[in-house]
Amino acid sequence: MSTSTSARRAPAAGRVDVRKTYKLYIGGAFPRSESGRSYEVYAAPRGSRGSTPVFLANVAKGSRKDARNAVAAARKAVGGWSGATAYNRGQVLYRIAEVMESRRSTFVEDVRIGEGLTPARAEAVVSAAIDRWVWYAGWADKFAQVTSTVNPVAGPFFNISAPEPTGVVALLAPQESSLLGLVSVVAPAIVTGNTCVVLPSRQRPLPAVDLAEALATSDVPGGVVNIVTCHTAEVAPWLASHRDVNAIDLTGTAGVEDLAWGELELAAAESVTRVLRPAGRGPAAVEEDFTAEPGTARMQAFVETKTVWHPKGL
């Protein structure tokens, strides 16, 4: 088992425990943080038994430079991924669901321990996450049909508007829903042809590391999804102000201390970065319910509209 640690599963007698090093996922590779830092991750407390937190793992603590490298990797991947046919992207997303299905037990265990769920509930969450990939995979070659328009104009022209990917998207993934929420923000961003840099849940990053391994062994080109485990409040401002980031999703600001989403939106405005605000009203962000059917809003948040004029022939 790749994710077994001494805290979770004791090794068989006479066998040395194979400990796992939790690393970042940048450009299709698994580097350590350039800062050399890591931080401790604990299991979610459950009921009265949660008095002493159970240690789970030391996870790489990404820095602003790791985020910078991730943006560079994502930028490099934009051409190939946005240039792939929508049909092909749909197949690749479906493939991610396949690989997650075959690694199901790993995901279930990490979600159960990380989020403090019952085994049955963890199974349901992982199923929902896998189904979400399939749901978005189906949208790949339909999104443009549903959202593009033929506009009436006063002249002998066809006037057609169609969505195009915006480029590199920074995603602050939800802090509570560490797998379903993560998939629910990554899938809509990449299905339309964007590439992304993801800051996963700070306290529950293990499902994101598992997802990175699933992505690396599916057909997703390196650099399309880059995952930087870190302290969200430390790295997010660098992504918001980064001039080579085209859009930022602020969902993961909910529940993070010392991080006001308004400040990030302000920094993003400096380079006209698209912003997807978190749910909730006013300055206090709340995490949305990811179990509901998502709708197309998240896909629409990260596209540009291209309009072309074409003369009508005889």
Binding site: R75, W238, H242, R243, D244, A267
Partner: peptide, 9 residues
């Protein structure tokens, strides 16, 4: 500027 820049600049 204090912000990372990109090839567009």
């Amino acid at each position: 500027t204090g912000a990372y820049s990109g090839a567009d600049y």
